[in-house]
Simulated scan of single mutants.
Amino acid sequence: MSDKNLQEVLKKQEELKTYIQELGSVAVAFSGGVDSTYLLKVAHDTLGDKAIAVTARSCSFPERELKQAMRFCEKEGIRHFVCESEELDIEGFSHNPKNRCYICKHELFEKIIDIAKEQKLVYIAEGSNMDDNGDYRPGLQAVAELGVTSPLRHAELNKEEIRILSRELGLSTWDKQSFACLSSRFVYGEEITREKLSMVDKAEQLLLDLGFHQVRVRIHGMMARIEVMPEEFSKILENREKITKEFKTYGFTYVTMDLTGYRTGSMNETL
């Protein structure tokens, strides 16, 4: 990135800080991903103890992600609240309708609102960015309905810019793989169960342990469809026997590789 372009991105960061300063106090929905980590860091640097983190614990959120989120807050001295938000207990969620993300986010943000009120904080913030405007994102409907703020979109920051700024701030998440809840691995209309969420979690953990940087294991019945970056296709074939053997111990009957490769929201392609 040229010095000129970097200055433009840094200007957006200053606009973000100004916006957060005007909020005065905020509870950040914190998943530990690239976007929410950057948002939380800037919010805490700007507001101090008037910025807190809230993370949801559920079977669709891997334990490794929760532990990483907890370690970050401890390292940064950020007050961190973990709330139970089990999506499968929400009526209709397990049937995996097209508005599944709306159902989940509405429930989660209501719990964050309650925590914010208890802590006497005025605003709730979430980490969607400008790139999220182009995909099917029913969760943003819940954001709008409940008056949740989206500071990164307000500052018109996209994913690439957030990664650049995260690196400038020394955040280890600057090159972290993109992540979405495990429920997003299911075909719309296919029932989401704890057993299948566990299968997906174990499968993706195996691929991460093998050194793949960006992965998705989509589930179709009892078939796994692996998405990795095209430049890592050969690595799948090199580890074919181990991957197939382990996936079958998790419960998958068939193991396949998507020749299109990794992309966000591939389950939305049928909508």
Results as ranks from 00 to 15, higher is better:
Phe247Val: 02
Met130Ala: 15
Phe252Leu: 07
Leu88Met: 13
Glu241Pro: 03
Asn129Gln: 04
Glu86Pro: 00
Lys159Leu: 05
Asn5His: 12
Gln177Leu: 01
Phe247His: 02
Gln7Phe: 00
Ser60Thr: 14
Leu23Ser: 11
Arg216Asp: 11
Lys67Asn: 13
Arg185Asp: 04
Leu6Val: 01
Phe109Asn: 10
Thr264Pro: 04
Asn96Phe: 09
His220Asp: 01
Cys181Glu: 12
Ala155Pro: 13
Leu40Pro: 12
Phe93Met: 07
Ala53Val: 04
Leu152Gly: 04
Phe247Lys: 09
Gln177Arg: 04
Ser198Asn: 08
Thr253Pro: 00
Lys111Cys: 10
Ile52Gln: 06
Met229Ala: 00
Ile124Phe: 00
Leu197Glu: 05
Ser2Ala: 02
Ser150Thr: 12
Ile103Gln: 06
Leu108Ile: 13
Asn133Gln: 15
Ala27Cys: 07
Glu86Ser: 10
Thr264His: 00
Ala53Arg: 09
Glu168Val: 15
Glu238Gln: 13
Asp132Lys: 06
Asn133Leu: 15
Lys50Phe: 11
Leu10Asp: 00
Leu6Tyr: 07
Lys75Ala: 10
Leu10Gln: 11
Ala27Asp: 13
Gly261Asp: 08
Leu140Arg: 09
Lys235Arg: 05
Thr149Asn: 11
Glu84Thr: 05
Glu8Ser: 14
Gly221Arg: 06
Tyr262Trp: 13
Lys248Phe: 00
Thr193Pro: 01
Leu237Lys: 02
Ala56Val: 10
Leu157Ile: 02
Lys242Phe: 06
Asn268Glu: 15
Glu204His: 04
Ala29Met: 14
